[in-house]
């Protein structure tokens, strides 16, 4: 990898200051960024590690019953500590990558990168979560803006994400056999005021909501409610591992399975 300076601030304020330098880049758990650096796909002047900032780590419940997770919290911690509050979210976190990756990779890092095959974006979007940064709050529907693109400004840091807890939820991930990222995955969350369905891994535009399914499932939260629906293959990812038609098909299959599993 290219040479860079490495700083390890202990507060959000110091991290934001460090990120103000030209070509500085934040380092979460590094599980995606470090391989990219090895391939020399990025050349930051300074890498600002967020690994020593205690204030952005942890899982708790707020007064509204939302699960609040610090941006620097690892997937393994979410899998353990969110299980009692939001089992579907914890289960999703417990299947990202592999155990060693889950011990380093973080919620904030995943969301900031917004890989089109990542798991967290589906959970955040389906849960209608709020992404909180050092400067503002961003609704999930506004946050994701296409493959590897988000609403984050330069130097803006995800400090926390607040997840409303649905009445029922489930995440179904069909893995790409090599990377074990999602070939296609669906997060279904049923709230009192309706159902949200978020799909990752499938679209060239990154994570998206399948609104037709949401409407049908809001009327009847059963797999059968999807019977007449289909997802257009247009805009779906076409690669070695699946055609657009295959991915479109998987969206429907996995949504049905998620509904059945959520009960």
């Amino acid at each position: 990898m290219y040479a860079f300076d490495f700083v390890r601030p202990t507060s959000v304020a110091d991290a934001v200051a460090a990120l103000g330098e030209a070509d500085a880049q934040a380092l979460g758990g590094g599980q995606t960024l470090i391989p990219a650096l090895k391939q020399r796909l990025a050349s930051p002047s300074t890498l600002v590690s967020l690994g020593a900032i205690a204030e952005i780590r942890g899982v708790c419940l707020d007064d509204d019953g939302r699960v609040c997770i610090g941006g620097g919290t690892t997937h393994a911690t979410v899998a353990r500590q969110a299980a009692a509050h939001y089992p579907a979210l914890a289960a999703m976190a417990g299947r990202i990558g592999d155990p060693a990756v889950r011990n380093r990779g973080t919620l904030g890092g995943s969301l900031a990168n917004n890989d089109p095959s990542a798991c967290y974006p589906a959970a955040v979007l389906a849960s209608n979560a709020t992404v909180i940064t050092n400067t503002r709050r961003i609704a999930a529907d506004d946050y994701f803006q296409g493959m590897f693109t988000t609403a984050l400004e330069e130097g803006e840091l995800i400090t926390e994400v607040r997840f409303p807890v649905p009445q029922a939820a489930n995440y179904q991930k069909f893995v790409q056999p090599a990377s074990r990222f999602a070939l296609t995955a669906v997060f279904v969350a049923r709230f009192a005021d309706g159902v949200r369905v978020a799909v990752t891994g499938a679209s060239e535009e990154g994570v998206f909501r399948w609104t037709e399914a949401e409407a049908a499932l809001s009327d009847s939260f059963t797999p059968g409610a999807l019977a007449a629906l289909s997802v257009p293959a247009d805009g779906m990812i076409d690669d070695l591992h699946g055609t657009p038609e295959y991915r479109a098909h998987l969206v429907r299959v996995l949504t049905g399975r998620a509904v059945a599993a959520a009960g």
Partner: peptide, 15 residues
């Protein structure tokens, strides 16, 4: 196209 373990699927223990 399958130029790394991201796209070249090696058998894992659960395969």
């Amino acid at each position: 196209l399958s130029g790394s373990y991201m796209d070249y699927a090696m058998p894992r223990a659960d395969d």
